[in-house]
Amino acid sequence: MSFWRRLRKFPFLSWLWLIIGALYFVLPLIATLEFSLSWDPELPLKAYQRAFEDNDFWETFLYSNALAVATIVVSVILIVPTAYWIRLRLPEARRLVEFITLMPFVVPAIILVFGLIRIYSSSLDVPFTEIELMPPLTNFKMGTNILIVAGYTVLAMPYMYRSVDTGMRTVDIRTLTEAAQSLGASWFTIIARIILPNIRSALLSGALLTFAIVVGEVTLASFLGVDAFGPYLFLIGQHRAYEPAALSFVTFLLTWLAMGLIQLFTGGQGQAAGAH
């Protein structure tokens, strides 16, 4: 191929679009990194050191991680059997369940937390009496925990359901189930030993996405008054300059790690969440 022909085929415009996008993507990260390292020229990692020295950071960060794990567990318990049952026995419920899992797109976090607070800030009484069955969930620690994990499970539902359902489609769980049944396996064995291992990469990508949504989440956490990492980051952002930049960059690395792992497990289509 001649030089000119090669030149004519060179995708200038494609490179241009890619470079513009890449700059948009990378510049804020470089800026954050640069800023976080500029506190003390003698001690470039000072901001990171200070941020990690703060007890509140560890407390809120670990707490957020615990919330993420709880959310993932609840999501798996709720969604895997449901998706499985729909594929196996109840295809007529597919549209309904898919509709429900899409609802979080219609009811964004701010609306969801609004509704949750309005419902669960009053006690559950026996109708027409003053007898209290359950105090308001928002009034005690465990109650808020339940509420926020439930809220996160709702927010993660579209991604978790889609991941799991796609996973089940690709391994043809119906045939697997029939084969296992014919060999005399019980339902529990089938789900725990056959289905879960076979959709593990789908589960992992759903779980990592959930993790990415939950750990930095701020809307639900702040309105429910939970001391999670998101509100903490917001708070120190009000008072400090360098530590927030350092923590933002760390958060970015964590998101990157989660997405990188998803890419590794699913080997293709990344997914987008929406904890904005």
Binding site: A22, F35, F252, Q269
Partner: peptide
């Protein structure tokens, strides 16, 4: 690019705001 996009579309909220302040 797909991995980058997966990260960026999930990189939001407080850290994103701080990143842009720094930018």
């Amino acid at each position: 690019l797909i991995t980058f996009s997966g990260v960026a579309s999930n990189f939001a909220g407080v850290p994103l705001a701080f990143a842009f302040v720094a930018t």
